[in-house]
Design a protein around this nucleic acid. Structure first.
Length: 492
RNA sequence: GGCGGCAUAGCCAAGUGGUAAGGCCGAGGUCUGCAAAACCUCUACCCCCAGUUCGAAUCUGGGUGCCGCCUCCA
């Protein structure tokens, strides 16, 4: 029924996508740690996997999409200290801003969005079982995973334990307090004891909190099962985060954690990774102040997800200009001049696809059904089937936009535009036309212009025009006040 | 140091054996009272050097440059 190929980090190859259980797809993406504003890098990650889950649904799969929120972590605790707030307040605050940002970017909410703090008991249980199985050990209130007990450790990150130990030397030196608590420098914490007054939960090993990697292992187990289809995240999570998840889950369950591992590349600034620690990030809210959600999405999706994006205002501006072409073409889907039948059917089609269409219905919902739309669909689907190549898919959108502009037959033109909108929405573009939305600063300049023209009229003793302007502005709610030498205005 | 990845036009960016998608910018033209939009035309010997092949941006080896991970990170 399909031929989607995905690049699997585990094998390093592109493979045919075949779910474990019929057409059900269990998919998990590592979400944010909520300790600060989300930036473009986070936006890329969420938009990429948003498109992946949309496309899988389009392709007929019954997708369960889970994206977690890490709401307990050292960074949150540190942030809370710096702000004089509780960690819970910080986590909640940035969870809300994350949701807000994602909503603005038209990222669909996941089917489940577990938070680490909701799974503490199960994480403790998970840890207990690992200890019982001999894969973990307690050490002075901490619990560590015994890396040596999992012979496949390093299979995702393509690292050998020997290499890691060599590379870990510096780290050992900087963590001398841990050196004698851990059997091996490569061992990682499942449970960390809490200092006095810190955020903590009680456990068989005393007051403490879970290690970062544990939450994903626990939450996927309980929401998706011991083995699921897709585990996704940023490429910086390959090692150690996902490696450690594999170690925990597979050591405990004795079966693969996830069949496919997808990792997206970064947003770079001047060829360097955009990150909090580099201080070179643009928050989503900063970008949304200057660029529309569709512009940001188009910008992100014009690059294949496994390649780095070179961020610059120039590049974003180029995407904004490019989006204008798509919007103008899409406008033909709803701005019918005289096609009455289209007004009803066309609008209805667009309503139906407000969220998205499916591959099965795409053809039947095609109002044109000619060679052009047929080829467009084939090319678009081929691109997306090839490891979600949104860059090529978008190039097809532009090609179809060209057809819209060139087509003379009004019904066909509207049909092409309708198909364009349908597929653009599959990529999460809203195609909401914001070109007529005017901000208050612009409005102010326009009113000032009108006032200026009225002044000219008065100077020419053209009081008819002058009075017309006053009346029309009054109708619009704007009062003009002529005083000696100048005219001011205010909105009632 | 170990592991992995990338080098394509002024810029962004697809393309994994058959002679370079797309977008932005730029030039000329059509249209237009002016402008915008739209349309037409033009703009790349794919980092370097060897090799494999009838044929390579695409495969192999070497070189150069850049980046990521190995510590929190989407």
């Amino acid at each position: 029924m399909h031929s989607i190929n995905v690049h699997n980090t585990l094998t390093g190859k592109k493979e045919p996508f075949v779910p474990l259980n019929g057409n059900k797809v269990m998919m998990y993406a590592c979400g944010p740690t909520v300790y600060d504003m989300s930036h473009l890098g986070h936006a890329r990650m969420t938009m990429v996997y948003d498109v992946v889950q949309r496309y899988l649904r389009f392709s007929g799969y019954d997708v369960t999409y889970v994206r977690n929120i890490t709401d307990v972590d050292d960074k949150i605790i540190n942030r809370a200290k710096a702000l004089g707030k509780t960690p819970e307040q910080v986590a909640r605050e940035y969870t809300y801003t994350f949701w807000h940002d994602m909503h603005c970017l038209n990222v669909q909410p996941p089917d489940y969005e577990p938070k680490a703090t909701e799974f503490i008991e199960l994480m403790i249980q998970f840890t207990k079982e690992l200890i019982e199985k001999g894969h973990a050990y307690e050490s002075a209130g901490d619990v560590y995973f015994d890396v040596a007990s999992f012979k496949e450790y390093g299979k995702l990150g393509k690292k050998s334990l020997e290499d890691l130990l060599v590379g870990a030397r510096d780290q050992v030196r900087s963590q001398e307090d841990l050196a004698d608590k851990k059997k091996s420098p490569a061992d990682f914490a499942l449970w960390k004891s809490a200092k006095e007054g810190e955020l903590a939960w009680s456990s068989p090993w005393g007051q403490g909190r879970p290690g970062w990697h544990l939450e994903c292992s626990t939450m996927t187990k309980h929401v998706l099962g011991e083995t699921f289809d897709i585990h996704a995240g940023g490429e910086d999570l390959v090692f150690p985060h996902h490696e450690n998840e594999i170690a925990q889950s597979e050591a405990l369950h004795g079966k693969p954690m996830s069949k496919y591992w997808l990792h997206n590349s970064f947003v770079q600034v001047n060829s360097e990774k955009m990150s909090k620690s580099e201080g070179n990030f643009s928050t989503i809210q900063e970008l949304l102040a200057k660029f529309s959600p569709d512009t940001i999405r188009l910008f992100a999706l014009q690059t294949h997800y496994r390649n780095p994006i070179e961020f610059s205002i120039e590049a974003l501006t180029a995407s904004r200009t490019a989006l204008g072409r798509i919007l103008r073409a899409a406008a033909f889907a709803v701005n019918s001049q005289n096609g009455k039948s289209f007004e009803t059917t066309g609008q209805a089609l667009l309503e139906q696809t407000k969220n998205q269409i499916s591959k099965a219905t795409a053809e039947s919902l095609d109002p044109v059904k000619d060679e052009t739309t047929k080829q467009f669909r084939a090319a678009f689907i081929e691109a997306m089937d090839n490891d979600f190549n949104t860059a090529v898919a978008i190039s097809q959108l532009f090609a179809l936009a060209d057809k819209v502009f060139v087509e003379k037959d009004e019904a066909k033109r509207q049909g092409y535009a309708t198909v364009l909108v349908q597929f653009a929405r599959l990529l999460g573009l809203t195609l909401v036309d914001t070109r007529k939305q005017i901000d208050s600063h612009t409005v102010e300049q326009i009113v000032n212009l009108v006032v200026e023209l009225r002044q000219n009229a008065r100077s020419n003793k053209d009081y008819a025009t002058s009075d017309l302007i006053r009346q029309r502005l009054t109708d619009a709610g704007v009062s003009l006040m002529d005083t000696a030498g100048q005219t001011t205005w205010e909105k009632a």
